[in-house]
Design a protein around this nucleic acid. Sequence first.
DNA 1: GAGCCGTGGTG
DNA 2: TCACCAAGGCT
Length: 350
Amino acid sequence: MSLPDDLLAWYDRHARALPWRVPPDARQSGVAPDPYRVWLSEVMLQQTTVAAVRDYFRRFTERWPTVEALAAADDADVMAEWAGLGYYARARNLLKCARVVTAQHGGRFPDTREGLLTLPGVGPYTAAAIASIAFDRPETVVDGNVERVMARLHDVHTPLPAAKAELTALAAALTPQERAGDYAQAVMDLGATICTPRSPACGICPWREPCRARAERTQAELPKKALKKSKPVRQGIAYVGRRADGAWLLETRPPEGLLGGMLAWPTTAWAEGAPEPAPPAEADWQDLGAEARHTFTHFHLQLAIRVADLPHSAVPTRGEFLPHDRFRPAALPTLMRKVHDLARATFRPD
DNA sequence: GAGCCGTGGTG
DNA sequence: TCACCAAGGCT
């Protein structure tokens, strides 16, 4: 038995049951995955855990069962449905991609890695994942799991990201011509359930015998990674205003950059040091005395909160009033939902 | 190559 | 409390 065969045999017994996955037995009986569902799941899973993705995947596929349905959706509806999942450029690219596939490819996803790479939001990993999982092409997927598994299997001590090319070559050398889709998912399942970042379960690993790191007892320290930079602290002020009729003053953030395209409370700029106030409407803004703390990828944020009852005649300089019955806190990104949770108690119950 | 871009779980 | 981490892509 070869290494890939050993892994596939393990996968046949231990594959995780996932909503977007065709299990190995069904697959070998000729059931083909739906490329739309494979693509959607892979985009959602970028830097995101399976546990976080499950409910989002279910809601998206119920609401938009096909790529054509998604392509026809309103941008704001898609952004609201994505709210809380993070990395919102993914949602913007998701729509772009659905519209390209619908308008330029007749609603069918390209079935090669090269074709898939031309799509918005589809990079080297996702293109290989869709090509292998949806179309059974022998492409090599290299995600964080595969990097970790290869670094341990071959005892590679070069730190990431410099080691990326080396680990990719090692992974490619193992990729089988047959059952490419199952193999791709098998390596990732191995990384997610056995060859985990901390406390890997080497004793029950199908690759425990050939694993070089296990032999050298270096598995816990691999893969090596470059030191991370510390995060600076930025500060700002969020303005939560409500009109007497219950409408909230909200804005849609600019399409690019942090939380781009998302519904949000108007805020000052976020910078190191005390923020310059920038209220979105003339009113008696009161400091809430509590702040929302949130950590983004590259900085910590401390967001002070100011609240105001706005007169019906108020003309905001930014944002617009969203009627009470059309406002869903779930449509806010998490930071803005935290702000709402802190501020809501200060207003009369609706 | 490196910075930007979210969030929730975990030790 | 806090740093680390997860099926990356774009610029």
